[in-house]
């Protein structure tokens, strides 16, 4: 109960901060737009080629946005040494992890929705038809991305070479999530039933669970002065 209250207040605090400063979200939306243009320039205007590459591009976009966005959420804790205050909070630090994870998840979800809409418009693909299965795949993938990203983001926010180290740690660990989500997205966009990619969904769910448990258990060691 107290755990949930504390996780919630962390989420509340960060959402309020983000709403007032609009530091991350605006930049990430713009970044998503930039990515879209870059993909287009890199692959050429051929619609079919783009459509074939779409699942990969989509997740590449999500992950690139994640690299920019996920590492940032702990920076606000460095101002005025708030980080120390969090360490000194009595009780289970897992609540802070969960709150930050929720913030990161929502941040990613917002960017992903924008990126999806942009892809749909600019590349003229019908994403709406498979919106339900697609949402499930994206949900599972985003939880995996955010749970590891939150843990590593907390770590690297205390390191001088933060921008460099964060992707170096995050990307190799995220390979299973990338493989699973790209394959599942591909199948879903081809109109296949979710049951066809059941093994991928299970793998993603298992990965999410493992990352989440490790994150909850080890976060207290990351959050030390």
């Amino acid at each position: 109960m107290m755990f949930a209250r504390r996780a919630w207040i962390v989420l509340w605090k960060d959402l309020l901060t983000e709403r007032r400063s609009k530091e991350s979200l605006n930049a990430l939306f713009f970044f998503a737009l930039l990515l879209l243009f870059l993909f287009e320039f890199a692959l050429g205007p051929d619609r079919e080629r783009l459509a074939a590459a779409l699942p990969g591009l989509l997740w590449l976009g999500f992950i690139l946005a994640g690299i920019l966005g996920l590492g940032r959420t702990f920076l606000v804790e460095r101002e005025n040494d708030c980080w120390e205050g969090l360490v000194l909070t009595p009780g289970d630090k897992g609540a802070i992890y969960l709150g930050k994870l929720a913030v990161n998840f929502l941040l990613m979800a917002a960017v992903e929705i924008v990126l999806l809409a942009l892809f749909g418009i600019f590349y003229n693909v019908d994403l709406w038809g498979s919106v339900v299965p697609l949402s499930l795949v994206i949900f599972l993938g985003t939880v995996g991305l955010a749970s590891v990203g939150t843990l590593f983001g907390a770590m690297t926010s205390q390191v001088r070479a933060r921008e460099l180290l964060f992707p170096l740690l995050l990307l190799p660990v995220q390979v299973p999530v990338l493989l699973g989500t790209v394959k599942a997205t591909e199948a879903v966009l081809q109109g296949l039933a979710l049951a066809e990619v059941g093994h991928w969904l299970k793998l993603l769910a298992a990965a999410d669970l493992v990352y989440l448990v490790v994150g909850l258990l080890t976060f207290e060691f990351v959050l030390e002065a």
Binding site: F152, V173, L179, V210
Partner: peptide, 19 residues
């Protein structure tokens, strides 16, 4: 922390790449 996450990730990586 990375050492722990890296190790528990091994089976997940294994199956994902296998499939």
């Amino acid at each position: 922390v990375v050492g722990i996450l890296g190790a528990v990730n091994v089976p997940i990586v294994h199956f994902s790449v296998l499939w």
